[in-house]
Amino acid sequence: MMKQLVVFGMAMVAALCAGSQPARAEVTAYAVGQGAVNSITVGVEVRASVQGRCGFATGGAPSGSIDQADFDQSGFSKDFAIQLNCSGASRIAVSSANGGMTNAASTGLGYSSKAPYQVALRMVADNGTSASASCEASALAAGGGCSFAGTAGNATGLRLAGASTKTNGSYLRISAPAYAGTETLVAGRYVDTLSITVSVSP
């Protein structure tokens, strides 16, 4: 007696689930040497999506401080490493609490209690593309005109076009040359706080 393998409705079930193909008739597959059809192939369409994610990698947020004595004479420069964990394009933005380093001491004519400095961003994607920009700290205060000032969002902040998930040389740099303002800086401590945010970008 000839043996045969009958496969029922597999294509029909797949078509009904997909909702886009008509039901197919029953197809019979035969053992090798006993019929022309030895196997049956059906297609099952599988779709999925991955939602964009973006943030700082564990331990990858820029952090720390700089404490430079006599910065008005020597200036300063320091880089703070950044590592993102972004599966696609991202934006990063920076805001300054004071718009410069400020001293709480009162000042008189010819003296100043605010010292300027610069902030630079360089972001590098996993594919090697990069984005960079720099601004005066004064442009990072509320209402400042820096291209990456404020809070990162769909249209605000420095845009990095590619995914970035590795340690690849991204950094935030703060620097200042020796002070050359016309007003003398009053003696004392000067401080500012920078806030950095990152966001998914369309």
Rank of each mutant, 00 (worst) to 15 (best):
K3Y: 04
Q4V: 13
V6H: 09
G9A: 15
A14T: 11
A14I: 03
A15T: 07
L16K: 10
C17G: 12
C17H: 12
Q21S: 14
P22V: 11
R24L: 09
A25M: 10
V32D: 10
V32P: 02
A36G: 15
A36M: 14
N38G: 11
V44E: 02
S49M: 10
V50A: 14
F56R: 01
G60A: 08
G60F: 02
G60M: 08
I66V: 15
D67N: 15
D67G: 14
D67S: 15
D67Q: 12
D70G: 02
F76N: 01
S77Y: 07
K78P: 00
D79M: 13
F80I: 08
A81V: 02
L84C: 06
C86Y: 00
C86P: 03
S87I: 05
G88H: 03
S90W: 05
R91Y: 05
R91C: 01
A93F: 01
A93L: 10
T102D: 06
N103E: 10
N103A: 11
S106G: 12
T107V: 12
K114V: 11
K114E: 02
A115S: 14
M123I: 11
T129N: 15
S132T: 08
E136I: 09
A137H: 10
S138P: 06
G143V: 04
G145K: 04
C146L: 06
T151K: 05
A152H: 05
N154K: 13
L158V: 06
L160N: 00
G162D: 10
A163I: 03
K166R: 13
T167Q: 11
N168V: 13
G169M: 06
G169D: 01
G169C: 09
S170V: 04
S170N: 03
Y171C: 08
L172E: 07
L172V: 14
R173D: 05
P177S: 12
A178K: 09
Y179E: 05
A180G: 15
G181D: 04
T182Y: 13
V186E: 07
V186T: 07
R189T: 11
Y190F: 02
L194M: 07
S195D: 03
I196N: 00
